[in-house]
Simulated scan of single mutants.
Amino acid sequence: MRTVRRVWGAVRWYARELTGEAECDRYCDRHRRHHPHAPVPTRREYEALRTLRREEHPQSRCC
């Protein structure tokens, strides 16, 4: 049973990292620490902020 939980935990971690859900959680945690009285953005608001940030600060990558 312990092995099944470990494997499931690893799969869950990978899926959250792949979909960006973990990144949203990290952002919300940081937001709560630095702005304790401000409302925490929803997932939809976070995605909109992330999209705006990427459009305003494009990064070109080589290789």
Rank of each mutant, 00 (worst) to 15 (best):
Y46D: 01
V40H: 07
L52E: 09
W8K: 15
R5H: 09
H34I: 08
T51M: 07
R12S: 11
A38C: 08
L18H: 11
R2L: 09
C28R: 11
R50H: 13
P58R: 04
H35E: 12
P58C: 11
R50F: 02
W13C: 05
P36C: 04
R2K: 14
R30H: 09
R30V: 02
T51P: 01
Y27N: 01
Q59Y: 13
M1S: 15
A48W: 02
V11D: 07
H35P: 00
A48D: 12
A22Y: 03
V7C: 00
R30A: 03
E21H: 07
V40W: 01
A10T: 15
R2H: 10
C63S: 05
M1D: 08
A38R: 12
G20M: 03
A22D: 02
G9Y: 00
Y46V: 00
A22I: 01
Q59N: 06
T42V: 04
C63I: 04
R61P: 01
W8G: 05
R32M: 12
Q59H: 05
R61D: 09
C28A: 09
H37D: 10
S60P: 00
A15E: 07
H35C: 11
Y27L: 05
V40C: 05
H35I: 01
T3D: 14
V7D: 01
H37E: 15
A38E: 15
R2V: 10
R50T: 04
T51F: 06
T42K: 01
G9V: 00
R5C: 12
H31F: 12
C24Y: 08
E55T: 03
Y46N: 00
R43K: 15
E47S: 10
R33M: 14
D29S: 05
A22M: 07
W8Y: 15
A38S: 10
T42S: 14
C24G: 02
D25T: 08
L52Y: 03
A15F: 03
T19E: 11
R6V: 06
T42P: 02
C28I: 01
L49A: 06
L18P: 00
T3A: 12
H35S: 12
P58K: 11
Y14F: 13
R5W: 10
H37M: 14
M1E: 06
H57N: 10
G9S: 03
P58D: 04
T19V: 08
Y14I: 12
E17H: 13
E55G: 13
T19A: 06
L49Y: 06
E55N: 06
R61E: 06
E45L: 04
P58Y: 02
R12H: 11
H31D: 00
D25S: 14
R6C: 04
L52F: 04
E55H: 12
T42N: 03
G20L: 02
V40T: 14
E47M: 04
E23Q: 04
H37Q: 05
W8C: 08
R30D: 14
L18G: 02
G9C: 00
R12G: 01
R33S: 11
M1P: 02
V4I: 15
C24T: 12
H35T: 13
R32I: 08
A48G: 07
D29L: 11
R44S: 13
R33D: 03
M1R: 13
T19H: 07
C62D: 11
R54W: 06
R32D: 03
Y27F: 15
W8V: 13
A15Q: 10
C24D: 02
